[in-house]
Design a protein around this nucleic acid. Structure first.
Lengths: 179, 179
DNA sequence: GTGTGCATGTAATACGTTACATGATTAC
DNA sequence: GTAATCATGTAACGTATTACATGCACAC
C-alpha cells in the first residue's frame, strides 16, 4: 500500500511520468525515506492502472516509454489513505537492531562499529543539508523539503547517539583495564 | 538474517529461552527497534537449530515448551555478522513517507495529521524514558539501554520535526488566507 | 560499431503479516 | 468449569530483493 501511495504522490506532485522516471525519482528524493526498485514499480503501476487509480497515455513514446497520470479516483485514494488510515509505525531499523546487539561485543569492537556509523551518518547528514538548500531555492518544490528535513534530523540524532554510545564504550573499556 | 541475529543476540544475553519467551522479549525490549511475531520466530528457530547455530534441550518442559541455547558456532556467527557484514541501511519508514506526501494535502489537513504524530511520539518518548530508568537501575542490563537511548533520540527528533512542520503549515495556511 | 543510458519487463527467492488451528496448565 | 495465559505450529497472502532478459536510441 505504501509503495502505491508513494507512486500516487509522485504523480500528483510531478505530473505524468514513466515507470523509469518514477524509479529515478525514488532514488533522487524518496531514497532517504522509502526505497523501491524498478522490478517492484513496473508491476505495481500495472496493477494501479487495472484498478483505475492511474491511466496510461494512448501514445507510446519512443523507446516504448509509457506515460502514466493520476485519475480522480487516484487522488481520492491518496487523500483518504493519508487522512483516514492509521499509519503503520512498525520499526524495522537494522542500525537500531545492531545497537541492541552492541553489548554482546568487546568494547573495542563496538567502538569501531560506532565509528563506521558516525562516518556514515555524518556524510548522509551533509548530503541532506545540500538537498535542502536545493529544494529551498526552487520555489514550488516543497514536496521533498519536509522529508529532507526529517531525514536530516533523524541522521543527526543517530550521529549524536553514536557519539554518546562511543563515549560509554570507552568508559567501559577503561574500567575493565583498571580492574 | 536480521531476525536470526536478533534471536541469537537475545539468547546470548538472556541465556536459554523458548520461542514463546523470545517472542515476549521482542515485544518488551526489541519492539521499538525490530518487530517479529511468533509465526516468524518458530520456523526461524527450527532453521537455526538445523544449521547448528542453536540447540534445543533434550527434555521438553511442561506444556511442550522447548528451550534453545546458543552454540559456539552461533556466537561466532553473530560476531562476524556484526563486525564484517555491511549493515543494510534501507530506510522504510512510513511516517517519513507520509511526510513526503504532506504537501499534497490542504494545510489544515496536514496540521491535524501532524498533531496526531506529535501525540504519538510524545507518548513513545515518555515510554522510552521510563524504560531507560528501569534499565539504568538494574545493573548488567545494559543490553537494551543503547537501543532505548537511540529510540528515544529518534522519537524526539520526529516530535520536533512535527512541531517544525506544523509551524510551516500554519504559515502556509495564513498566507493563503491573506491572498 | 560499441558503450552508455533509456525503457520495460519476468522469475526465483526471501522476508513479513494475518489468520487459522490446537492443546496444556493455572487461577478463580 | 471456564477464562486467561502458556506454548507451538501451519497456510495464505502480500511485499521486497536479486538476478535474468530484452531491445531502442544516441553520442563518440
Amino acid at each position: 500500500m505504501a509503495l502505491r501511495m508513494a507512486l500516487l504522490g509522485l504523480l500528483v506532485a510531478e505530473g505524468p511520468a514513466t515507470g523509469y522516471t518514477l524509479a529515478k525519482s525514488f532514488s533522487g528524493s524518496l531514497d532517504h525515506v522509502w526505497k523501491a526498485s524498478h522490478s517492484q514499480i513496473y508491476p505495481e503501476l500495472a496493477k494501479m492502472a487495472d484498478s483505475g487509480l492511474i491511466e496510461a497515455s494512448d501514445e507510446i513514446q519512443s523507446r516504448g516509454a509509457k506515460y502514466y497520470s493520476v485519475t480522480e479516483s487516484g487522488r481520492t485514494e491518496l487523500q483518504s489513505w493519508l487522512t483516514e488510515v492509521e499509519p503503520t509505525r512498525t520499526v524495522r531499523n537494522e542500525i537500531a537492531l545492531r545497537s541492541f546487539l552492541l553489548s554482546t561485543l568487546e568494547p573495542g569492537q563496538a567502538i569501531s562499529l560506532l565509528d563506521r556509523e558516525m562516518e556514515h551518518y555524518r556524510v548522509r547528514s551533509e548530503m541532506l543539508i545540500e538537498l535542502k538548500k536545493t529544494l529551498d531555492s526552487s520555489v514550488g518544490q516543497e514536496f521533498g523539503y519536509f522529508s529532507a528535513e526529517l531525514g536530516h534530523r533523524i541522521s543527526d540524532a543517530i550521529y549524536e547517539w553514536s557519539e554518546w554510545a562511543k563515549g560509554k564504550m570507552e568508559e567501559k573499556k577503561t574500567s575493565s583495564i583498571d580492574e
